[in-house]
Amino acid sequence: MNTKTMLIVDDEPRTRQGLKKTLDTWSDGKYDIFTAANGEEAIEFMQKQKVHILITDIRMPEITGLQLLKAAKEQDINPVIIVISAYSEFEYAQEALRLGVTNYLLKPISKKVLIEAVESAEHSVAKQEQAGMIEKVVDKKLVHLYSQNPSNPEPIREAIEYINNSLKNEITQKEVADHVHLNPSYLSVLFKEHVKLTFSEYVTRRRIQRAKELLITTNLPIYDIAEESGYKTAKYFIKIFKEMEGVTPSAYRKNNNERAF
């Protein structure tokens, strides 16, 4: 499930196979590495399977590397891109950068330079996926609280931090009120005023968000995720999750089954 995909596109068989051999040895099973002899083959492949890193020659017959990148972009296919070329003309590099290329390598490419470029691309893949996961799990009503609004009174900031660190446990309003040295009724009023959610709504939303993170980034069974998110039974967790997200936890995991890490 963790294996990622790399695609090498070059019309020269020796170059194509040489790059693949070097990267197969470096990858040691981390990547499934495929090759394509031209831009058309590459587009067909990327339409069927997600490609995390694309390495493409820039000068190829029929569909050039730049045309391949444009076609991918138009179809919302967004791998991390490394361009290789025997040509150093500035306009190619300029256009490649405009199309989101992270590295532009000139032939002949040493193994060291190739591997350094791919390792750099790996970091970009991780950043892309982390951003994707945040987008998937984010709760719009909690967004403004992520950075802990400094204008919130200190007891509210402390209450939010306490809740966030205690999601696995049973959390009562009285317990949190005691922690921040406030009367529970006053905490309730203050919380609603500044967080724009009731105490229990906030706790539920944070628990479901935690569950979403675990569903996407781990293989933990549903009952373990229920427990990690603060629910005593999987049945109740599934009920609340479906009310909030419109699907069961299992369906949510299936729909977002590309792991972020």
Score class of each variant (00 low, 15 high):
169 N>D: 04
214 L>F: 01
134 I>A: 12
142 L>Q: 01
224 D>K: 14
129 E>T: 13
167 L>H: 05
117 A>F: 05
221 P>G: 03
183 N>Y: 10
125 V>D: 08
205 R>Q: 15
138 V>A: 10
109 I>Q: 07
169 N>L: 10
209 Q>W: 05
147 S>I: 05
151 S>M: 13
118 V>F: 00
159 A>V: 02
109 I>L: 12
210 R>C: 07
197 L>C: 04
139 D>I: 06
108 P>A: 11
210 R>N: 08
216 I>W: 05
108 P>C: 10
166 S>N: 15
174 K>G: 08
115 I>R: 06
216 I>P: 01
184 P>S: 09
185 S>H: 13
176 V>S: 02
203 V>W: 00
130 Q>M: 08
159 A>T: 03
162 Y>Q: 04
176 V>Q: 03
228 E>Q: 05
133 M>D: 06
197 L>N: 01
224 D>R: 11
160 I>A: 04
196 K>E: 14
168 K>M: 05
136 K>M: 13
210 R>K: 15
168 K>F: 03
191 F>C: 04
109 I>M: 07
179 H>K: 11
172 T>Y: 00
127 K>V: 14
145 L>C: 08
151 S>N: 14
112 K>A: 10
205 R>T: 10
181 H>R: 13
163 I>P: 04
176 V>A: 04
154 E>V: 08
156 I>R: 02
175 E>H: 11
128 Q>R: 13
116 E>C: 04
214 L>E: 06
149 N>I: 09
193 E>N: 15
117 A>Y: 08
140 K>R: 14
125 V>A: 06
202 Y>F: 05
202 Y>A: 06
128 Q>P: 07
124 S>D: 14
142 L>K: 03
196 K>I: 03
172 T>F: 03
145 L>N: 06
168 K>W: 01
164 N>K: 14
144 H>M: 11
186 Y>K: 15
158 E>W: 07
115 I>P: 02
114 L>K: 09
205 R>F: 11
179 H>W: 02
114 L>I: 13
113 V>H: 12
208 I>C: 04
177 A>S: 00
171 I>V: 03
133 M>P: 03
137 V>N: 02
195 V>E: 00
202 Y>N: 03
162 Y>V: 07
199 F>S: 01
125 V>S: 10
155 P>C: 13
189 V>S: 14
172 T>I: 05
176 V>Y: 07
224 D>T: 12
228 E>T: 05
169 N>Q: 07
161 E>P: 04
173 Q>T: 11
119 E>D: 12
144 H>S: 13
173 Q>P: 02
208 I>M: 03
200 S>V: 11
115 I>H: 02
223 Y>W: 12
198 T>C: 05
170 E>Y: 09
189 V>A: 13
113 V>E: 15
130 Q>T: 09
130 Q>F: 10
221 P>C: 07
113 V>S: 15
184 P>F: 11
179 H>L: 08
174 K>A: 11
120 S>W: 09
137 V>I: 15
153 P>H: 07
207 R>D: 00
152 N>C: 07
131 A>K: 15
156 I>D: 01
121 A>L: 12
139 D>W: 08
219 N>C: 07
151 S>R: 12
175 E>F: 10
199 F>P: 06
206 R>Q: 11
108 P>Y: 13
122 E>K: 06
200 S>Q: 09
157 R>Y: 01
183 N>Q: 14
206 R>E: 04
167 L>F: 09
219 N>D: 15
192 K>T: 11
223 Y>A: 08
165 N>L: 09
133 M>L: 14
147 S>K: 15
215 L>G: 03
183 N>K: 12
111 K>G: 01
